[in-house]
């Protein structure tokens, strides 16, 4: 039992969780303007788009796939939302249409990957460009800003004087659903098997292609939800909304210990990674670090996140080895 406690101590997702707490505590103490409720609500609100997409992305990476078109899907659904609003449609009709659009985007990715057997990295780099291009065709260089105020307020406001944005509450519900789906259902279990050894998963009667298709579709849906949230949160629907968001999402998810090769990781780790990245970005903005430098930091984190879990694993293997060597030699 002592072994497993030790092994757990160096598990990467725990490390990231601890790191998040350390960064928050340090920032409270040392960064001016960090600890007040308003700033914290900004931190959370600005991190929510990454967090929302990180939910399905985590499941996708666990199953050994990736979707880089998410930010473009988000941008496309924001653009369509703006265009339809200009046409005079009600927001209650527009939102379902946009969500459906996200489903279609995800389905296209999924079909290309599962039916044609193309690598998801290549497919979604292609649709990354395609979906963004369509967004530009749909909305041009317009910026639509005059959405109904109650929606804008919901997407950017917070509960009273607390640090909790309204939108954080539905996110928590989605998070709970995703945690259960990945860690407590047969579906989630099958994703780990697919990611670790797809052939063995097929031999165990797991419907690999179907599961992947479901995942890509869900990812498209969440990406368009994020696009809608983004347009309302920043009160601006433009074709280039959320550009580059996929990098932050992938960086955060890998930082949270989801193995790029598939088959390993926890959603808790991924979300800790997301908010760690969000907190760092917030602190850097408060310290007037330039946007370019922030991108460099994200890049460095991405490299660290790929190295970190490996180093952690090696440490725990080395410890196991040392334990074995020092074990008594009588049985």
């Amino acid at each position: 039992m002592a072994d497993s406690a030790l092994a757990r101590a160096v598990r990467w997702d725990t490390v990231v969780g601890a790191l998040l707490i350390v960064v928050l505590l340090l920032s409270f103490g040392t960064v001016d303007g960090f600890g007040n409720a308003l700033n914290l609500s900004f931190l959370i609100g600005n991190t929510l788009p990454i967090a929302l997409i990180a939910l399905p992305m985590t499941l996708l990476v666990v199953s050994g796939e990736i979707d880089l078109s998410v930010a473009s899907t988000a941008g496309l659904s924001g653009a369509v939302m703006g265009a339809l609003w200009n046409e005079g449609m009600t927001i209650e009709t527009i939102i379902p249409i946009c969500l459906l659009l996200g489903v279609v985007c995800g389905l296209i990715n999924g079909l290309l990957v599962t039916r044609l057997g193309l690598p998801s990295l290549a497919v979604t780099i292609g649709t990354l460009a395609a979906y963004r291009g369509i967004a530009q065709i749909v909305l041009g260089s317009d910026a639509v800003t005059d959405f109904p105020t109650q929606y804008l307020d919901f997407a950017s406001g917070r509960i009273g004087d607390t640090f909790i944005p309204y939108a954080f509450l539905p996110f928590l519900v989605l998070l709970a659903i995703a945690v259960v789906a990945l860690h407590a259902t047969p579906f989630g279990r099958s994703l780990f098997a697919i990611g670790a050894n797809e052939e063995a998963a097929r031999f165990a009667g797991i419907r690999v292609k179907r599961q992947k298709l479901i995942l890509f579709t869900l990812t498209g849906l969440m990406a368009s939800l994020t696009g809608i949230f983004w347009a309302l949160h920043y009160a601006s629907a433009r074709y280039d909304n959320a550009t580059g968001l996929e990098l932050s999402v992938v960086a955060a998810v890998l930082l949270g210990g989801i193995d790029f090769d598939g088959g390993k990781g926890t959603l808790g780790g991924a979300i800790a990674g997301v908010f760690l990245l969000g907190a760092l970005q917030n602190v850097m903005s408060l310290q007037d670090v330039s946007a370019q430098s922030q991108i460099v930091v994200t890049g460095v984190l991405l490299v660290l996140s790929v190295l970190g879990p490996r180093v952690a694993r090696q440490i725990s293997v080395a410890r196991a080895g040392r334990r074995a060597a020092s074990a008594p030699t009588t049985s």
Binding site: A193, A196, G263
Partner: peptide, 21 residues
Amino acid sequence: RAQGLVMDMSIERNIGLTGLR
């Protein structure tokens, strides 16, 4: 190794893979 087992999954979960239903 390639078809029967997920090598870095536990014994319990490997046997469990055929019981997901």
